[in-house]
């Protein structure tokens, strides 16, 4: 905690440089836990199908975005997919897990929706929309039940 004084005309103004620090811990819930545990333990990607409109979501979710249907049927989707869009960050932020990540929306084979993750193991200029990619999982001992248990997607 520190403060800086600035003077404006005849007025003194103090600027406090401080923080708000409240740790947060979010439950992934029944569905999210199942998806993350399958990634961690089996390198398996679980999606879910909407019983009403048949749309397959990966990652699995409780409620259909299209029709408000309540999803209940797990479906395994492929670890291979197609890049729908991507971006290369030029500067890193404090929130990012790696320096200058390349983010992409990837539609995995068997899913009707995109999965947001990172690309790696590829020259940036060689990335294109429509490119085929495959998930690269972390080593078993490094997987902790997180979306980051997938290190990134690399070109097929």
């Amino acid at each position: 905690m520190s403060q800086v004084t600035i003077k404006l005309e005849d007025k003194e103004i103090y600027v406090y440089e401080g923080q708000i620090y409240i740790p947060n811990k979010y439950a992934a819930g029944t569905i999210g836990s199942k998806v993350l545990i399958n990634i961690r333990d089996k390198k398996k990607l679980l999606g879910m199908r909407c019983p009403e409109c048949n749309k397959v979501y990966f990652p699995a979710r409780q409620t259909c975005v299209e029709c408000f249907g309540l999803l209940d049927e797990y479906v395994e989707v492929s670890d291979k997919g197609t890049v729908m869009t991507y971006t290369m960050c030029n500067e890193s932020t404090i929130a990012q897990p790696v320096d200058t990540p390349i983010y992409a929306v990837i539609q995995l084979d068997g899913a009707d929706t995109g999965f947001v993750h990172m690309l790696g193991g590829v020259e940036p200029e060689k990335i294109s929309i429509g490119m085929r990619v495959k998930a690269l999982f972390r080593e078993k001992e490094d997987r902790r039940g997180s979306v980051l248990d997938i290190r990134y997607f690399k070109p097929l």
Binding site: E12, I13, G18
Partner: peptide
Amino acid sequence: PEYIFVEFNTPRKYRWSTGPYVGKMYH
């Protein structure tokens, strides 16, 4: 059943100003 949790612990930084009124009191 086993449940997974996702944790976030990064403090958020702020620069709060007193403005002239509270600033005068500070001074």
